[in-house]
Design a protein around this nucleic acid. Structure first.
Lengths: 158, 158
DNA sequence: GATAAATACATGTTACTACATTAAATGTAC
DNA sequence: GTACATTTAATGTAGTAACATGTATTTATC
């Protein structure tokens, strides 16, 4: 259904406004979908996000601030997210030897197991998208979103 | 910058996974931008969202649940969002005469004034996007997001 | 080498969200 | 018309987020 119908707004002041609103709406939609998927595994989207980043590191530890960067999150929240993962046994936290301010985080075996249980479910859902958009279209949207975020650097001196 | 570089993940299991992750990332990016814009007007993105919907109604009142629908939000949160707008004098709440369970919400003059102050700022930011993507591309992304959300109905019986 | 500034993380506080529950009004079956 | 389910909104509670601040460590400047 078009965003016009979904939010019952007929006119937008520009294609860019429509895009901004649609982006937020679609992200909410996606967020609720994911919430539903993750709920039964006693984990949140944010926590999954951290675990995915940790897995990407293989056994290489990663700092809290680097995780926060990749999530566009505040350090303080990431700190507490990792607390939760620690309590559940999905991550380990050790002091970084080269910089004692920093904290090295790695995923545990239990964490990897959790991901391997969640992955097929997520994958199935993602592939369900192919019923509505093609792979080429998905790639197209993704690359246009990349382009859109580039306005960041353009706007900095305004 | 590409999402691969932003989140430093080189491989995705599919174009659809990349899209899902990129969508969340870009929406967070947009969210922080808006937060910044709204902050000095003592209002949140969510509250602005409600006001925008109320303005779209002109003087026609709208029910709390209808607002929630258009925001993909929970009724309970919308209820409290409106509380905030009420306190600030941006919205009015009256009992619906035809259905006394419902609550009619309308925007006030003060609310309209606030929007008219915020609009040009938002508009300027939105138009700043044109430095990175064209109007045609914005429309394209928007329509593809619409298409993407259609998998909702497809997935319902799975 | 001492001092100032910056960095990395943690935490207290306040506000917001999800979820479950409550309360009132309406709809439906009999 | 009464009994039961549904709808609509509000609220209590627990968890999460944003923001400011605190503490420890490192880097830069003199």
């Amino acid at each position: 259904m078009s965003i016009e119908t979904d939010i019952k707004q007929k006119k937008f002041r520009s294609a860019f406004q429509r895009l901004a609103i649609n982006l937020t709406y679609t992200s909410n939609w996606l967020g609720y979908k994911q919430l539903e998927l993750f709920k039964e595994h006693d984990i949140t989207s944010q926590q999954y996000n951290v675990l995915r980043i940790l897995r990407g590191q293989q056994s290489n530890p990663i700092k809290v601030s680097d995780i926060a960067d990749r999530m566009l999150d505040k350090n303080s929240n990431t700190s507490r997210l990792i607390d939760k993962l620690l309590v559940k046994g999905f991550a380990k936290r050790t002091s970084c030897p080269s910089d004692r301010r920093a904290v090295d985080v790695v995923i545990t075996e239990t964490g990897l197991e959790l991901l391997s249980r969640i992955d097929p479910i997520l994958e199935e859902w993602e592939n369900g998208l192919s019923a509505s958009i093609t792979e080429e279209e998905a790639e197209l949207v993704s690359s246009l979103l990349d382009k859109m975020r580039e306005s960041d650097s353009n706007n900095k001196n305004q």
